[in-house]
Nucleic acid binder design. Structure first.
Length: 772
DNA sequence: GTTCTAGAAC
DNA sequence: GTTCTAGAAC
């Protein structure tokens, strides 16, 4: 989230010997923004001073417009509290850089060093380090930090230093927990550290190249190299620096990216198909410009991805971006693995593009092999349902099954296969240097790709999503442009595309909608409702739900003040530090204020107007997936604390409070604040909708069947039944008494340690699989 | 969502 | 008389 003030308090957290001063010396002289080091060891005329002196100097530096580096151990909550309060008072962001090395490494470094400003060195210093180490409390967001970075290795420290070095005055970094950590402590801190480790998947550390370097080195030489840089050589350093800079536009402007649905795509045809790079770069940028001329596409984002930071195509596309004046927030460039954009690159992409072969088969090399490998067998199976072959210039959209690792880990909902022109004489259908036709096909390829993306976002995903043609796109354009010149296009989505391409796209879409034609032979065989069917389904839903009042389902519901509490939290998570566990661009995780079980968290969506599952549309699938992923991560962490727990993730069909929120709740349902029948039934009947079922329902039906007031009333007033043995209980006290002695195992639950989530709930009111 | 409380149920 | 529920108020 943006703040108007981008000054930062960066608090180093680590025992003696963790290298805090070295970090300051690297950042301060060379940084892109002014930094002031606050060092307690020298603050009193070169000698050790007090915390109050540090606070005073810190306040003075902030007043002069400087960001501040707090160079003290800051080892526990007490040591950090005053500085965090100062940051809060001054309205500046508080970051922590946690030097999470093993104590042995810190002791070795501290005892071997020959200089230290505070005189803390020599053979006896080990005892000090151990003492400090034992008392450490890892920082959490709840203390008031907006960003925490964990470093376990020198390479990770270097990466963080590089990031802060390049941080210009006007830049700001995303909120959240970054980096990885291993913590050997016990209790809550261990749990939080584990959560932070899992967060790494969620929000990522931002530089693919740096991570790769780090990973390679750790493989080559396990363990820590005291005092030594892990960056292999200068040229790699420069490559890293170059790449870090290239991503700053993305990373430091999260607000402008917030809520944007994103398509990542590689360069098509320039590798194995040997298409001329300059021509290809020109086509990519111009295709993007045309795409964004359509105002409907303002909420979309494209990311051009190439594996190597030294990629010639990346450089050419960036150069053309500048030359053509395209807004860099619309077409971003990124060096990294397209299959690991979220986990390794920190870039959540809804859809990714595969440079496919004409048989749509795995294998080969490059992007095609990588995507099929990352997506697992699921992608191959799903693709077969949509097309068997692909011609140059065409695209085919394949929704990724929920089971695909690419979806579960990276949050990718669709893979769009495209095939570009071939200029390689050793590959089939070589155009033998005919760049007139080659450029035409490559333009058609990108136009098909971008429009398939747009159409999918606009809800066409519920339609068969084949964009594969039987002819080359150029041929179709030539043959069919007159025939379809009055075609309506796709909900205006292609209105600003050049007429020839718009017609080609319209042809493809119409082909996709037509049943029983030759075109459909390559269309999806999987039954999905078309638009008319979808409308009928929604009408039926409204009828059967007995509600003619659209305000119940479309965000015009009035919320009382008490019901707006969750919204206040997502708008200002920093003001609710005591309960906030994690903040991402799309969600806030909190401890439920009135836990109805031993463990009860809420994962709250941050989007405006998304208040209940009945507000969810197909385009919100990535949000639901993100909430589910966060919930699973936290449930997994909680299970590590207590493996006897069983968790469910789900939503109340009709929520009491504004802002879509998912419950992560342990199935003991043992809580003094679970007091009445409504409480009980809201978690044990079909009023509680499992997250997995909601994901499936939205994917299959486009939205969630509303809950009529009659059904809501019936479910919440059902007789009380034990959720284990299903025996009826006369009242809450008797039920609670029964629960203390009931030993019946929970039924229909998957084996531990996996969570949850599918159980047969009481009082079945609906089929979760069908669209009604 | 919780708290309070009148009145039903026991 | 005590326990429990359900609706109003916030």
């Amino acid at each position: 989230m943006a703040t108007t003030d981008t000054r930062i308090m960066l608090m180093l957290v680590g025992p003696p010997g963790s290298g805090k001063s070295t970090i300051c010396n690297k950042i301060i002289p060379n940084a892109a923004r002014p930094w002031t080091r606050i060092c307690q060891d020298v603050i009193s005329k070169g000698h050790r001073g007090t915390r109050v002196q540090c606070l005073k100097q810190a306040a003075s530096a902030v007043s002069k417009g400087s960001s501040i580096l707090i160079d003290r151990c800051n080892i526990d909550v007490d040591q950090r509290r005053d500085f965090l309060e100062l940051a809060k008072e001054r309205g500046i962001q508080a970051h922590a850089l946690v030097l999470n090395f093993p104590s042995s490494v810190c002791i070795q470094r501290a005892t071997q060093r020959t200089e230290h400003e505070g005189g803390l060195l020599g053979p006896d210093v080990g005892r000090v380090v151990n003492h400090v180490y034992r008392s450490r409390q890892l920082p959490i967001l709840g203390e008031g930090f907006s960003r925490i970075t964990y470093c376990r290795t020198d390479a990770e420290v270097e990466k963080a230093v590089t990031l802060y070095l390049q941080l210009h005055t006007e830049d700001h970094l995303p909120f959240g927990i970054f980096g990885s950590t291993v913590y050997e402590g016990k209790g809550t801190l261990q749990f939080l550290a584990t959560a932070a480790r899992d967060d790494e998947r969620e929000v990522g550390v931002r530089t693919q190249q740096v991570q790769r370097t780090s990973a390679q080195e750790s493989q080559a030489s396990p363990g820590i190299k005291p005092g030594g840089s892990s960056i292999a050589n200068k040229s790699q350093d420069l490559a890293v620096e170059k790449e870090e800079k290239s991503t700053l536009g993305i990373l430091f402007d999260s607000d402008s990216c917030e809520g944007k649905t994103t398509l990542a795509f590689p360069s098509i045809s320039t590798s194995d198909f040997q298409f001329d790079h300059e021509k290809a770069a020109d086509i990519i940028v111009k295709a993007a410009i045309q795409f964004f001329q359509d105002k409907d596409h303002a909420g979309l984002r494209l990311i051009f991805v190439d594996l190597s930071p030294n990629s010639d195509m990346l450089a050419r596309v960036r150069r053309n971006l500048v030359k053509e004046g395209l807004n860099p927030q619309q077409l971003l460039t990124h060096a990294g693995d397209i299959t690991k954009l979220r986990s390794s690159g920190g870039l959540a992409c809804n859809m990714i593009t595969n440079a496919a072969n004409w048989r749509l088969k795995p294998g080969g090399g490059g992007v095609n092999a990588a995507i099929y490998k990352a997506a697992g067998h699921d992608l191959e199976q799903a693709t077969k349902q949509y097309a068997s072959t692909l011609n140059p210039g065409s695209a085919v959209v394949v929704p990724l099954p929920l089971s695909s690792p690419l979806r579960k880990v990276e949050g990718v909902t669709h893979v769009i296969h495209v095939l570009g022109p071939n200029m390689n004489p050793q590959r089939p259908n070589c155009l033998a240097g005919d760049y007139v036709q080659g450029c035409q096909i490559l333009r058609a390829t990108y136009a098909s790709l971008f429009n398939a993306f747009s159409a999918t976002v606009k809800g066409q995903a519920s339609l068969p999503l084949g964009f594969a043609s039987q002819e080359r796109a150029g041929d179709i354009v030539a043959q069919e442009s007159n025939k379809f010149k009055n075609g309506g296009g796709v909900r205006g989505g292609a209105s600003s595309i050049r007429p020839r391409l718009a017609n080609a796209f319209t042809i493809l879409m119409n082909a996709a909608k037509q049943k029983g034609t030759g075109e459909l032979d390559t269309m999806p065989k999987r039954k999905r409702p078309d638009e008319k069917e979808l409308n009928e389904i929604h009408s039926e839903i409204t009828r059967t739900a007995g509600t003619s009042d659209a305000s119940n389902t479309h965000g015009t519901r009035k919320w009382d003040a008490w019901a707006q509490a969750l919204r206040a939290i997502v708008l200002h998570p920093e003001q609710h530090a005591s309960i906030v566990l994690q903040v991402t661009d799309e969600a806030v995780v909190i401890s439920d204020q009135y836990p109805k079980a031993q463990k009860h968290l809420l994962v709250i969506a941050r989007r405006d107007g998304l208040d209940s599952i009945e507000d969810v549309c197909i385009e919100h699938l990535p949000v639901l997936q993100h909430l589910h992923s966060l919930g699973e991560t936290w449930a997994t962490s909680l299970l590590k604390e207590d493996p006897s727990l069983v968790f469910r993730l789900g939503y109340h069909w009709v929520p009491s409070m504004q802002q879509l929120h998912m419950h992560v709740i342990s199935q003991d349902l043992d809580s003094p604040v679970l007091k009445n029948k409504k409480h009980w039934n809201s978690f044990t009947t079909d009023f509680f909708r499992d997250s997995q079922d909601i994901l499936a329902e939205v994917e299959n039906c486009g939205r969630v069947k509303p809950c009529s007031p009659e059904v809501e009333d019936r479910l919440l007033k059902m007789e009380l039944r034990c959720h284990r043995c299903h025996t009826a209980q006369p009242n809450m006290p008797r039920l609670k008494s029964h629960l203390r002695s009931c030993k019946t195992p929970l039924k229909d639950l998957p084996q531990q340690p996996h969570l949850i989530n599918k159980r047969k709930s009481l009082g079945a009111a609906t089929s979760s699989s069908g669209c009604r």
